[in-house]
Design a protein around this nucleic acid. Structure first.
Lengths: 140, 140
DNA sequence: GTCACGTGCTTTCATAATGCAAGCAGTTAT
DNA sequence: ATAACTGCTTGCATTATGAAAGCACGTGAC
């Protein structure tokens, strides 16, 4: 089952992996809300179903966008972290947020981050990237 | 059917509209390959089904991302054009392309545009935006 | 120890989205 | 006159998604 790609176009390949209504929301919750645990993702406003969440998380781990590790404080708790590949998705999320804020019926509260991104642009993205690297990438 | 939004978050709202495996590919074909006709979209490498394509096009028109007009040269031919809202999606497509080129198994040929975007950045996006405005927005 | 609660899921079944192949009512070029 | 082209529809099989419940544990309070 090697050549199961629709095409080799970078956009097409990315959409094969992330082109659905949930994957990027999970990453949004990690990047902008600091969520790391299964139950936290389950409690997002959009209400993802638990089976879908489980499937997406393993998908993202398999793809190399997230890693899954044990929580020292609780044997049953898993910590999901972004990889560098995952952190690289921040500009994508930022652009989507900026577009949505401009063209969709958002509320001021829910689009605060997008507004800041639109105003402060690359600078804020750089700061956020640095912060995510600190929090998600193992110290070396 | 007013509050059928999952949430008012700009990312969530955008994904409700564009978070599938085809919508952004149609826009890619318009922006980077200059496609404007139904049959042209049908012939993309990824092979979209005709019913799906029809549904997506009306969806994008309804959302205000595209407009549909008659082709003067052929009574049955329709021309699809980007609106300003559609053209604003170029930075989103660009970031997706840049990410895909960096992290997915693309071929050099299919990622040429993404490579240029990664190298020349905002400048090229500005140029492309200007070009799309010329070609898609009615002269005024 | 035990009992309520938190943990990341899985299972089941209904419903919705997608994909495939064929067809259709025109229009146009030869 | 005919063949090819136009933007779609239609019918049906397959796949993805969604909602609700449950499960096998681990943990903390009493």
């Amino acid at each position: 089952m090697k050549n199961s790609y629709r095409s080799r176009c970078p956009i097409s390949l990315t959409l094969d992996l992330l082109g659905d209504r949930w994957s990027l929301l999970i990453l949004r919750d990690m990047m902008f809300a600091g969520k790391r645990h299964y139950r936290e993702f389950l409690q997002s406003d959009e209400g993802i179903a638990s089976n879908i969440l489980a499937e997406r998380l393993t998908r993202l781990v398999d793809a190399g966008i997230l890693t899954k590790s044990e929580d020292p404080t609780h044997l049953q708790k898993a910590i999901y972290s972004l990889t560098p590949m995952g952190i690289d998705l921040l500009p994508v999320l930022a652009q989507i947020g900026i577009w949505g804020r401009k063209h969709m019926p958002v509320t001021p509260a829910s689009s605060a981050v997008a507004g800041k991104l639109a105003r402060e642009g690359d600078r804020l993205i750089a700061d956020l990237t640095a912060k995510l690297k600190r929090e998600h990438l193992a110290p070396n």
